[in-house]
């Protein structure tokens, strides 16, 4: 069941990728390091817990230096010795575009995360434990992101952008009756590009 669920996610993920939905829009892709930490108290944490995120940004509105836009993404993260997760996330972003190609970026988001153990699991069947995984854990993941981007061609509205993001997010629920929620951060390095101009 565990792998069936994962495969379902991957199928949806690939469907999104291959869809024409993205044909005229930018693709954002980033690698990130996830950590359980209190936001803004730490930056680059070790050991590395790698993640990969891919998504797109919709056109939104541009006024003065501000660009306001919705964005969606899917991603995978692997927290060593503890869990792996797949998620889908919707965000609302506000970029402040300076004249020098540098963009100050903020986003708030809400996503769905499904986590699975990275280790062998033992499930209690009412009388004893058996070697069996569960169906994983359903979570919501509200997030707040800040960061910087740099347009490689500042006068081109479809310029490729390199960005760095600090995303703080909450995993909820975490362990009901024990630990209500868990605080995480993802530090992203990524790019936004237009595959078809």
């Amino acid at each position: 069941m565990k792998y069936f669920s994962l495969q379902l996610y991957v199928a949806v993920f690939l469907l999104l990728l291959s869809s024409n939905l993205f044909a005229q829009q930018p693709i954002t892709i980033s690698v990130f390091n996830e950590a359980t930490t209190i936001p803004f108290t730490t930056f680059l944490n070790t050991p590395m817990h790698p993640g990969l995120q891919i998504g797109t940004e919709f056109e939104g509105k541009m006024k003065n230096h501000f660009r306001i836009y919705p964005a969606v993404s899917v991603g995978y993260l692997f927290h060593r010795n503890l869990f792996q997760g797949l998620y889908a996330n919707a965000e609302f972003g506000v970029d402040y575009k300076t004249g020098a190609g540098i963009n100050i970026k903020t986003k708030i988001g809400l996503g769905y995360l499904h986590t699975f153990a990275t280790q062998q699991e033992f499930q209690f069947n009412g009388t004893s434990y058996e070697n069996k995984g569960d169906r994983g854990n359903a979570r919501i993941m509200p997030s707040l992101t800040i960061g910087l981007g740099y347009d490689l061609h500042k006068n081109d509205p479809q310029s490729t952008e390199i960005f760095f993001l600090y995303q703080s997010w909450i995993e909820y629920p975490y362990s009901p009756g024990f630990i209500p929620l868990m605080s995480h951060t993802n530090v992203h390095l990524g790019t936004k590009f237009y595959p078809i101009k």
Partner: peptide
């Protein structure tokens, strides 16, 4: 280019998916 990206990402995700460790 689009197909290559798709295949690369699929392989990365699948590689990570099978990383569930069994106990010694």
């Amino acid at each position: 280019m689009y197909k290559k990206l798709e295949i690369t990402i699929m392989l990365v995700v699948l590689a990570l998916m099978i990383s569930c460790e069994q106990d010694l």
